[in-house]
Write a protein that binds this DNA or RNA. Structure first.
Length: 410
RNA sequence: GGAGGGAUGCCCGAGUGGUUAAAGGGGGCAGACUGUAAAUCUGUUGCCAGCCGGCUACGAAGGUUCAAAUCCUUCUCCCUCCA
């Protein structure tokens, strides 16, 4: 079997590595490795997916990944690469976030079966005794060196609070703890974590005299350099409650041309050979590759059933084929409401939540961006009546070029 | 602790009493072009009404004035220099 490091490297997961040969050698046998996740939100989003995919590869290769929830470090806030201090989160929020994230991680990794672990660093960070910790751990950290680190540069100009300055030390301590308790020899993380990760590697060497290793993932950005996974409407959530599988599918379907191959390697398990064949699909054929990406990625997060429905709904609205549009986001309204409310088109969109405000809806309609069942809405004062619904009592609302909603009359 | 500077719409940033819902840029949205791409061009971008108009808004709270983002007072936060 191929060394999982080679797999990860070939698929584009590796940005920085402490010692390539050593890591490979290490991974010739089943090992424990870990990546940290900060429970700063109530759901995982696409930004978390890359580490998760890497852990999935690890698990599949017979290693034992640990997803480490930063329940303790989240109380502090990581200053790396940030320009401003992060808002402090309350302990209660962190607790709730942890639960949610743990559940979601279990969706990707076999936690129940014990092939992977989810741990929480609050367990060892919260009980720490300050003086003891300073004496044992703190003395190994050179302030001079920490200050020289790239990660702090920006913050040195803008101001860095002492609490944040400690983040790196705590993360290093995590690595040490996991080495001691689980024999963990490898830490992975986003490239912005490189400094923190090296600090941990260093600490283990100093205290335990043991070489541990690490590598980082590239930070994914869109072609114009923005963080991937943030849309105007917010993060691309991995929870179907926060983002429907159809919309999730659409997110992947709409990635830029230049990113498709890269994303296929990172976010699907398709064999590299198959992916490299897709590189030939230029011009409009690249849409096939995007569709494949969207489908595979949706399968991983939402399962085959949902992925299939999303694909079908996509075909229904974009290709006009008679496929089922079941997966489309939308809502139901009562027939009597239609008569009682006397909706005009703009209020209709606003009140059903498809448009953030009535003004916005009016603007959109005025600009010719809305159609009901394929028929352009030319006047925002147009009355919404049964005539807007088809024989199945459905109204397919198209807003802009690629946003679809469905309203069903009950 | 002392001295000074600052806080403007999603972001950056102009504006120092009325003509300012607030220049300009970025971003977003829409239209054209396309391949549900990129680039480009055009329009648009607080809310309600859509004919007039009304309301809310320039860190927070008060005040001066016919009239305040612009002046005064207090408060909060941030930055720079000194200790």
């Amino acid at each position: 079997m191929q060394n999982v490091y080679d797999t990860l490297k070939a698929r584009g997961f590796i940005e920085n590595v402490t010692d390539e040969e050593a890591v490979k050698a290490l991974l010739n046998e089943p090992r424990v490795c870990y990546t940290g996740f900060d429970p700063t939100g109530d759901s995982l989003h696409v930004g978390h997916l890359l580490p998760i995919m890497a852990l999935m590869h690890m698990e599949r290769a017979g290693h034992k990944p640990i997803a480490l929830l930063g329940g303790g470090t989240a109380m502090i806030g990581d200053p790396s690469g940030k320009t401003e201090m992060r808002q402090m989160i309350t302990a209660g929020t962190i607790e709730a976030n942890k639960e949610a994230m743990k559940k979601q991680i279990g969706h990707y990794l076999d936690v129940e079966g014990g092939k992977s672990l989810v741990l929480d660093n609050a367990r060892w960070l919260l009980p720490l005794n300050y003086i003891e910790f300073l004496r044992e751990i703190g003395r190994h950290f050179s302030v001079n060196r920490m200050l020289a680190a790239e990660a702090y540069k920006q913050r040195l100009e803008r101001g860095l609070s002492f609490i944040e300055f400690n983040y790196q030390i705590l993360q290093a301590f995590d690595f040490l703890t996991l080495y001691r308790s689980h024999g963990c020899l490898l830490q992975m993380g986003g490239n912005d974590q490189w400094g923190n990760i090296l600090a941990g590697e260093d600490l283990v060497r100093r205290l335990e005299g043991k070489e541990v290793h690490a590598f980082t993932y590239p930070l994914l950005t869109t072609a114009d350099g923005k963080k991937m996974g943030k849309t105007e409407k917010g993060a691309v959530w991995l929870s179907s409650e926060k983002l429907s599988p159809y919309e999730y599918f659409q997110f992947w379907r709409n990635v830029e041309d230049s990113q498709v191959i890269k994303l296929l390697k990172l976010f699907t398990f398709l064999p590299l050979k198959e992916i490299s064949e897709m590189e030939e699909w230029t011009d409009s054929r690249i849409n096939k590759a995007k569709e494949r990406l969207a489908y595979e990625a949706t399968v991983i997060t939402h399962g085959e059933e949902e992925a299939r429905k999303a694909l079908e709904a996509t075909k229904a609205v974009f290709a006009g084929a008679g496929a089922s549009n079941e997966a489309l986001p939308g809502t139901e309204i009562k027939e009597e409401d239609l008569n009682v409310r006397n909706w005009d088109a703009a209020s209709f969109l606003a009140e059903l939540g498809f448009s953030p405000s009535k003004s916005e809806a009016k603007r959109l309609i005025k600009q010719g961006g809305v159609s009901f069942n394929g028929e352009k809405v030319s006047d925002f004062a147009m009355a919404v009546t049964e005539a807007c619904f088809d024989e199945n009592k459905e109204c397919l609302i198209k807003m802009g070029k690629k946003t679809f909603f469905k309203v069903v009359l009950k």
